[in-house]
Design a protein around this nucleic acid. Structure first.
Lengths: 344, 344
DNA sequence: TTTAGCACTCACAGAAAAAGAGTGCTAAAG
DNA sequence: CTTTAGCACTCTTTTTCTGTGAGTGCTAAA
């Protein structure tokens, strides 16, 4: 059976009405609101066809129709009218970034909040994959007899600091020496590579300072390594209560637990190809318990190599067009602001 | 009317049975489970008296009785048996802190999680009031022609860092000079005081470096000032779904919104006097929408002057004894660990 | 002062009934 | 061959009604 013009119109109407109302939509509604001049009986025939093709489904006999995953997919890929952001949306976004760029962390956190407010869905952002960042240099500043301050500067302008305990008998000159060696050997390496290779060599090379090295390494790994790249920023947790899909408490329970755990959220965001916004609908999400949700995701960049991910999670009946352009615009802006403030 | 021994026993029984079951408790239950040898009719009389005194209330005629705010208050103040932490609880706590002390932030975050797991309620912790911290010293490290790194060390061993833009023509010696002046003038002052008084003087004194000073000041205020002391750490958000008090979605909605906002939570935790755990029951919380909740709160200390607050929010029918001792023990431990790692 | 007995109240659960929305099918019209 | 009107049918949702049980308050006796 062919998807002719009118079938597409019917599909589009069903999707858009359902997105707005959340109620299954019937033939009469369409014949009166969307395709005036065509009788409800005709629409019924078209709908039966669309159902046979797997684009619509019926919650039960004698209810209206609801789009299926594939129905949404066709809508998103072919039918969705382009959405241009409203003045209001644009100014909301630009006013956030207009302020002086503050710390990266809080900027990302604010972005999550912004996205959730603008979309009314749940926004999640993964911190940049810092393990891909490259080491620039470090300094060791003696504070007093026993303690010294270690400062790390990386590629993207990130700074990390930590306290070192200095064993008795190690003086400032020796700390300088350690720093010099480290700087010389590690410059330009990615954090990953340092953790994997370079470290072992250094450890035997500077074995008399092992105690200090261990601490420095610890700091490097803890703050920049695997753990921190999984950092999740959330906005709009309360929004998930808004849509009726989650009025069932069990659903809510499992989703909230997932959110709390944060680990579950990391795998949620799929790999996204560059400068593209990806939409995953219902069952296209691998997570069983999210089969009633959809996700709109994209990447952001800091400089050439550092990337993080942004996603908006909402009910399957999501305002795809609007969210799509919001996510696109926000990731672009975020990338620009972060890159600028990191000195690229 | 006097609160004789038996009335107190009845009150205690009602509270403890209701805390466990969540169901209003009737005279028969008490006569059989708690005061064997006294008939239900007698209990009914006692209960009527207790109700008249405002310690119990009836959801409706012909339901059992439920403790009122004042009833809980009497229970908490006089009737509650002391709770000693179980082996299990103790080991859960000590195993968290046994690990090497990591960053303060993550330690606090973990504590929130721990408390929520141990109590099954919502745990919230306010970060320490950094504005009470005193300035120790700062360093300015030139990174390249245009940028320098500012490192702040304060009283409690906290470090803050930030990038400075250095205007053309300002060389390393001048940066050293600025740092020296600042160190000399600000040492030992609280951050609050610097913000209020000292700053203005310095600004005119070093007016030719105003651009750099502004940035340094900005950093100081942003990271250590008012804003950051309101930082809220949460654990167990999902727990609030557990208790039936919040099965009504509107309630949940408003609480979650409050949680998300975080501002609302700051005022939630009352001023607490030192080394004491405070319990606020139902209407004793000023927030209207939390009149079905109770809060157990305490202070923690880092060194002599820095304080933060810890709270556990749960349903009014809370296991007060257990939560009380948990909060007490956790704040003590947290204080000790944080103080030690800050070098006190 | 305590207890037994009894009538009364109220929420809750389940069944039955009524209302409503929407469909599928058939037959007629264009 | 396509579109439309009409109608019976299905299924959910809402409302109404009724029975049941837990628990109380009161009275009178121990």
């Amino acid at each position: 059976m062919r998807l002719d013009e009118r079938k597409l119109q019917v599909l589009q109407s069903v999707v858009e009405d359902f997105v707005r109302s959340g109620e299954p939509v019937g033939s009469r509604t369409i014949s009166r609101k969307y395709l005036v001049g065509v009788s409800s009986a005709t629409i019924r025939n078209e709908m039966a066809d669309l159902e046979e093709m797997g684009l619509l489904e019926q919650p039960h006999t004698s209810a209206g129709r609801v789009p299926s995953d594939r129905g949404y997919r066709v809508y998103v890929d072919h039918l969705m009218p382009p959405h241009t952001l409203t003045e209001q949306e644009l100014s909301l976004i630009s006013s956030l970034y207009a302020r002086k760029a503050r710390e990266m962390e809080s900027l990302i956190q604010q972005t999550a909040r912004l996205l959730s407010e603008a979309t009314n869905y749940l926004a999640l952002i993964l911190g940049p994959q810092l393990s891909q960042t490259t080491f620039r240099h470090l300094k060791i500043l003696p504070l007093n007899e026993e303690k010294a301050l270690l400062v790390l500067v990386t590629d993207a302008g990130f700074l990390e600091k930590g306290l070192l305990e200095v064993p008795g008998g190690v003086g400032p000159q020796e700390l300088d020496y350690i720093a010099a060696v480290l700087n010389d050997r590690l410059r330009g390496m990615t954090v990953d590579r340092i953790a994997q290779e370079a470290w072992k060599e250094l450890r035997s090379e500077l074995s008399q300072y092992r105690f200090i090295l261990e601490q420095a390494f610890q700091l490097l790994v803890e703050t920049v390594g695997k753990e921190s790249e999984e950092r999740v920023y959330l906005g709009g947790t309360a929004n998930i209560l808004r849509f009726p899909e989650f009025q069932r408490l069990e659903r809510l329970q499992s989703l909230l637990a997932r959110i709390e755990g944060e680990e579950g959220l990391v795998n949620l965001l799929p790999e996204v190809s560059d400068s593209q916004v990806v939409i995953l609908i219902g069952g296209e999400l691998t997570q069983q318990d999210l089969r009633d949700c959809s996700l709109v995701a994209a990447k952001y960049h800091i400089g050439p190599s550092l990337v993080g991910r942004v996603g908006v999670l909402g009910p399957r009946r999501m305002e795809y067009a609007r969210v799509l352009s919001l996510v696109g615009h926000v990731t672009e802006t975020l990338s620009r602001v972060l890159s600028r403030s990191a000195g690229f």
